[in-house]
């Protein structure tokens, strides 16, 4: 019963938040609605017993990434409100229609057997010793060690790339000064 109530509450927050992201005319509001959705996601993860993922969701997504978004919005001063009419006339109706079609298709596909994988014998969710955190950690550092190490390389590349892209080069600065 508690689960049901919690699920419905989180579901409402998530959907409203998602709609809010799309509908808000001010990007800052969009970002705040996004936080609501992301936090309710963390709630779902707890309901499903994925405690570690839930914690990471709060720390990385709901805080770090959203803060980054807000920071960029403030830095660039792009919190201007968007005009209501879309210059591409067909875009909005076609997008809405496609969205509904995809939603219907996803629901339709759920009735089929498209998600039948064999149940795991090695990394079961319920059995084995230790809690969820410990088991996920063991899985990451044994079976998925190589991909895990590769992701660290990916992050380093992303950081270096981010710095390289956002850095203001002296030459470009001089050029823009001349232009001004």
């Amino acid at each position: 019963m508690v689960t049901l109530v919690l699920f419905i509450a989180f579901a409402i927050i998530a959907l409203v938040g998602a709609l809010g992201v799309v509908i808000s005319r001010n990007p800052v509001h969009s970002a705040l609605w996004l936080v609501a959705t992301l936090l309710s996601m963390a709630g779902f993860f707890i309901l499903e017993g994925a405690y570690l993922v839930s914690a990471v969701q709060v720390i990385v997504y709901a805080s770090a990434i959203v803060v980054l978004f807000l920071f960029v919005i403030m830095l660039l001063g792009v919190d201007r409100e968007e005009s209501l009419t879309d210059p591409l006339k067909v875009q909005r109706p076609v997008a809405l229609m496609l969205g509904l079609v995809v939603f219907a298709l996803l629901i339709g596909l759920m009735g089929n057997h498209w998600a039948t994988g064999a149940q795991s014998a090695t990394a079961a969710l319920e059995s084995g010793d230790g809690g969820n955190v410990e088991r996920v950690a063991r899985e990451i550092f044994t079976t998925y060690l190589w991909p895990f190490e590769l992701t660290s390389a990916l992050l380093v590349v992303a950081v270096v790339g981010g710095v390289a892209l956002a850095r203001r080069s002296r030459r470009a600065e001089a050029a823009s000064e001349v232009a001004q």
Binding site: L98, V101, V102, L105, L109, H113, W114
Partner: peptide, 11 residues
Amino acid sequence: AALLIFALVRS
């Protein structure tokens, strides 16, 4: 969407 339709038809 077209891919999803394909998956639906095939299954």
